[in-house]
């Protein structure tokens, strides 16, 4: 029996969201008297991976393949194989484009119950239940999982990792067979050069139509830079092509859960709120005191973004 965590690597490092998944997996292992193991696929090094012991991993299965993230079938084949070899009762992934796709494939291969957007640790009182976010953060469901293998995709901030000195044993690992070629060919990847990735960001500065035009985004970027935050935008801004689609936060865009979300010149339509309501602290800056966003905010400033943002940036520097 084990808890198996699928860790995503980026530039040789384990992604922050995967650290959360490992810590989550370690707590599940503790509650079920088993051990937390990690499957890491990609380029890295033994030192980096052994440090996952700090987050509760006892063993890291390291598969040194450099598949692009479009090769979902290859990742899923390897993870499903590791689940069988390790007789895992729980499979944990961090929510991401790759994580959810791999979770779905592995669940189908093992006929395992699957819960995504999980926001808390499982309850083992009567069978296994997990709490997950539904209706785009407007509600929660407690879901009972009826199968021997359970696959969980966890949402950002489901747990707050605390390091405890430990060393994980790193094992070079291979699946028992190779995945069939699915004919998926990655032609090109276009990635923004921004320093902070929005889905993983703890701090987010977001702006809406109140900025009046894409040429005015400098004051948003300056504030984000002073904070070390990622930038985001509302749907109208992305629809108008002022900002790229992957920055669009809302019901039909990205759902974020940062510690701090600063909304600048966004009125706060219910569809936008659905994408940000999991944020710990929300600051709203809007010149319209009647903007509905103030009702969902922790701190509010009624004022002109063109005046307020530069002053905030200066105060931070």
């Amino acid at each position: 029996m084990s808890v198996l965590v699928f860790a995503e690597l980026e530039n040789g490092q384990v992604k922050k969201s995967s650290i959360e998944a490992i810590y989550y997996g370690a707590l599940v292992a503790k509650a079920t008297q088993s051990t937390a193991k990690v499957l890491a696929i990609g380029a890295s090094n033994s030192d980096t991976l052994s440090q996952l012991g700090n987050w509760g991993a006892s063993e890291v299965l390291w598969l040194q393949e450099t598949w692009d993230s479009a090769q979902i079938a290859a990742y899923a084949h390897a993870l499903a194989d590791a689940v069988a070899q390790e007789q895992s009762a729980f499979v944990i992934v961090a929510k991401s484009v790759l994580g959810d796709a791999v979770a779905a494939s592995v669940a189908a291969k093992h006929k395992a119950a699957l819960a995504t957007n999980v926001v808390a640790l499982p309850d083992h009182a009567a069978g296994v239940t997990v709490k997950r976010s539904i209706y785009t953060g407007k509600a929660f469901a407690t879901v009972k999982l009826h199968t021997a293998v359970k696959v969980l995709s966890i949402k950002k901030n489901a747990v707050t990792p605390e390091a405890n000195a430990g060393v994980a044993e790193v094992k070079h690992w291979q699946p028992s067979s190779n995945a069939a070629n699915t004919g998926i060919k990655l032609v090109a990847t276009h990635k923004a050069s921004s320093t902070v990735a929005l889905p993983e960001a703890d701090l987010v500065v977001s702006a809406g139509r109140g900025l009046k035009g894409p040429e005015n985004w400098g004051i948003v970027e300056d504030l984000a830079k002073a904070l070390g935050a990622a930038t985001a935008c509302s749907k109208p801004v992305s629809d108008l092509n002022w900002r790229p689609h992957h920055e669009h936060v809302g019901q039909t865009g990205l759902k974020v859960a940062p510690n701090l979300y600063i909304a600048c010149g966004i009125s706060g339509a219910i569809q936008h709120l659905a994408g940000v309501n999991s944020s710990k602290v929300i600051v709203v800056i809007n010149k319209d005191p009647e903007a509905p966003f103030f009702k969902a905010a922790d701190y509010g400033i009624v004022g002109d973004v063109f005046e307020v943002l530069p002053r905030l940036t200066k105060a931070l520097q």
């Binding site: 993230s69 479009a70 060919k185 990655l186 032609v187 090109a188 276009h190 990635k191 923004a192 992957h246």
Partner: peptide
């Protein structure tokens, strides 16, 4: 398709 922070162009059968 959209990925975190960007997009991928993919060919498939």
């Amino acid at each position: 398709r959209e990925i975190e922070g960007g997009k991928q162009e993919i060919e498939a059968t």
